[in-house]
Simulated scan of single mutants.
Amino acid sequence: MLSTFISPVQLEKAVLHFLAIALAAPAENHPCIPVPGGDVTLVFHGLDIVQERGRLPLLVLDFDCGKFRLQVEFFGHLAPAKFHCARLYDGDEVVAEHLFADPGTVYRSELAGEMEAAFPDSADAGALMGSLYLWRSCAGLSCVCPEELGKYFGKMKSVSRYVWELLKAEYTNDAVVEKWITSDYTCASDSAGVSVVLENGVVVNVNM
């Protein structure tokens, strides 16, 4: 089982942390980005988009971890609700795998629930998080993807319900702290600004 190597929650945190590092790290540090993953260290190896007619595009991230290779798949972009599956390879052989969610379903994790709890009760936490992580995915993955995939992430922003601006992504006390804002969120028929702070890719504070 993959969970004997890295638990699903550790894997979620590690991949969200990876994207935070990509946003904060100088370009010369790409693509060999080391990411803490519980008892192991994952080193980003590359990404690809798999598109088949009639199916959702799959974002595929590859990490080296010692003698193994870890492949994590997402539905379209990197977000808590978009986890699809993870496979651990020894050479070309799959030695362990974990299914987060089937196509057409939303992955609901304990971590995502904790992040949604940071939003005020009046906010549509699911919609805001979905939009934020789409923009975060486009911004961070554009830093590490092959040039030919840049257009994919550029077009993806157009499907977002809200427009986000990244105010900062920097190291503070050994954690990557991001601050994002949107000014076009509507709550109770009134336009309201929303600012969201993340640490290592996890939402920790929301102000409206």
Rank of each mutant, 00 (worst) to 15 (best):
159 V>R: 13
175 A>E: 14
41 T>P: 06
65 C>Y: 00
67 K>A: 10
48 D>G: 10
57 P>L: 07
112 A>W: 03
50 V>C: 08
74 F>I: 12
114 E>N: 03
152 Y>P: 06
39 D>R: 15
138 C>S: 14
28 E>H: 02
56 L>P: 04
99 L>F: 00
175 A>W: 04
49 I>C: 08
147 E>Y: 12
60 V>D: 05
29 N>E: 15
199 E>V: 10
204 V>T: 14
126 G>E: 12
38 G>H: 04
139 A>N: 07
182 T>G: 10
119 F>N: 07
204 V>A: 10
139 A>Y: 09
1 M>R: 05
137 S>R: 02
32 C>L: 14
25 A>C: 12
124 D>H: 03
44 F>A: 03
159 V>L: 15
8 P>I: 00
157 K>W: 11
152 Y>D: 07
126 G>K: 08
34 P>F: 09
6 I>S: 03
54 G>I: 04
67 K>F: 13
13 K>M: 14
107 Y>W: 07
100 F>D: 05
111 L>R: 09
192 A>S: 09
75 F>V: 05
203 V>I: 14
43 V>L: 10
3 S>I: 14
60 V>N: 06
179 K>Q: 13
184 D>Q: 14
91 G>H: 01
180 W>S: 05
96 A>S: 12
188 A>R: 14
168 K>V: 00
145 C>N: 07
199 E>F: 09
74 F>L: 06
193 G>H: 08
158 S>G: 10
178 E>H: 06
126 G>V: 13
24 A>N: 01
45 H>T: 13
129 M>Y: 00
26 P>A: 07
116 E>S: 06
66 G>Q: 13
16 L>M: 09
1 M>G: 15
71 Q>P: 00
49 I>T: 02
47 L>D: 12
1 M>W: 11
161 R>G: 15
18 F>A: 11
81 A>K: 07
89 Y>I: 11
23 L>Y: 04
206 V>I: 08
196 V>Q: 11
125 A>P: 13
120 P>Y: 10
141 L>P: 05
24 A>L: 01
54 G>P: 01
51 Q>F: 11
175 A>F: 04
22 A>I: 12
142 S>K: 11
14 A>L: 10
24 A>P: 04
88 L>H: 01
121 D>M: 13
170 E>W: 07
129 M>A: 08
51 Q>Y: 00
208 M>I: 15
153 F>V: 02
15 V>S: 03
3 S>Y: 15
2 L>M: 08
35 V>Y: 00
164 W>P: 06
24 A>I: 08
181 I>L: 09
198 L>D: 02
40 V>Y: 09
23 L>F: 11
58 L>V: 08
57 P>W: 07
196 V>F: 02
78 L>S: 11
183 S>W: 07
170 E>P: 10
147 E>P: 08
58 L>Y: 06
156 M>T: 00
61 L>S: 00
118 A>L: 13
85 C>F: 00
187 C>I: 08
175 A>S: 15
131 S>L: 04
50 V>F: 01
77 H>C: 12
17 H>I: 05
17 H>F: 10
187 C>A: 06
